[in-house]
């Protein structure tokens, strides 16, 4: 018992006080991309050409689809002018698919659910996680929200063991053909009203597996999605930020 008490003292208090403050990200962390189209050379398409998932569209400026982006640095390495780079901003989640397009304008972050949904879920949200072809990186960094560091329970969010106990689904992976039916059944087993959260490039667009006949280009191919959390995988803070914004626990105006 003494050993346990000593260990307890040694391990200390480890929970971040997010969202009151944001922990420092590693200096090489790749958050929201920053595009300065003014620096582009006329007719240059280097970034778009090297992108493994076709996330970048050049023409009338440069647009980057966060839903496809793997945050892999191919574009930043290829750009001769430094017109595209990754910033430190971890806030990436959005409520609408089109809000994931990075253009150089101010970003539209995830909106809070409507009043009725917030009344139902705002203080208690039970989620069922379905991995449908995920590589276990998104799964791992969703799971990490349950550790003492993020302590998801203090926000009233909990992962539950049955869809019938859940208010919604959190989906990872491109949705493989072999998981399509299981995902559909799980979705149907969640009582209405329900919400669906797609986490990671695979669940939003298919990621590196986009257009494979073995997979379905993400969750929205088979069920409606209410929150998109981009990344490959998203940082745990990116996921938590998205969840809290959706529940109205971070005001939309708060850009911390």
């Amino acid at each position: 018992m003494w050993n346990e008490l000593l260990a307890r003292i040694r391990q200390g208090h480890r929970t971040t006080d997010f969202p009151r403050s944001v922990p420092a990200m590693p200096d090489r962390f790749r958050g929201r991309p920053i595009i300065e189209a003014g620096k582009c050379v006329e007719g240059c398409r280097e970034c778009a050409e090297v992108c493994p998932t076709g996330a970048i569209v050049v023409g009338g400026g440069v647009k980057l689809d966060l839903g496809r982006c793997l945050f892999c640095t191919e574009c930043t390495n290829a750009c001769p002018r430094g017109a595209i780079r990754f910033g430190q901003d971890h806030r990436l989640a959005a409520s609408a698919r089109e809000d994931l397009m990075v253009t150089g304008e101010a970003p539209t972050l995830a909106k809070a659910l409507d009043e009725e949904a917030r009344r139902l879920f705002g203080r208690s949200l039970k989620l069922r996680q379905v991995s449908a072809g995920g590589c276990n990186a998104c799964e791992a960094d969703v799971n990490v929200l349950n550790t003492v560091v993020f302590d998801l329970g203090r926000f009233g969010i909990q992962f539950v063991a049955s869809p019938r106990h859940a208010d919604g689904l959190l989906i990872t992976g491109p949705v493989t053909a072999n998981m399509k039916l299981a995902l559909q059944k799980t979705y149907e087993a969640v009582p209405t009203p329900k919400i669906v959260i797609a986490v990671g490039a695979c669940a939003i667009s298919g990621g590196p597996y986009a257009d494979h006949p073995e997979a379905l280009n993400g969750a929205s191919s088979s069920i409606p999605v209410d929150l998109y959390v981009p990344g490959c995988p998203p940082h745990p803070l990116t996921i938590l930020d998205g969840l809290l914004r959706m529940l109205g626990q971070i005001p939309t105006s708060d850009l911390r």
């Binding site: 998932t53 793997l70 590589c135 695979c202 590196p208």
Partner: peptide, 15 residues
């Protein structure tokens, strides 16, 4: 172009 993203996600915990 996609070879590396695919091998990095064959098993994401073993990137």
């Amino acid at each position: 172009k996609r070879s590396i993203p695919i091998v990095e996600t064959v098993a994401g915990d073993t990137t």
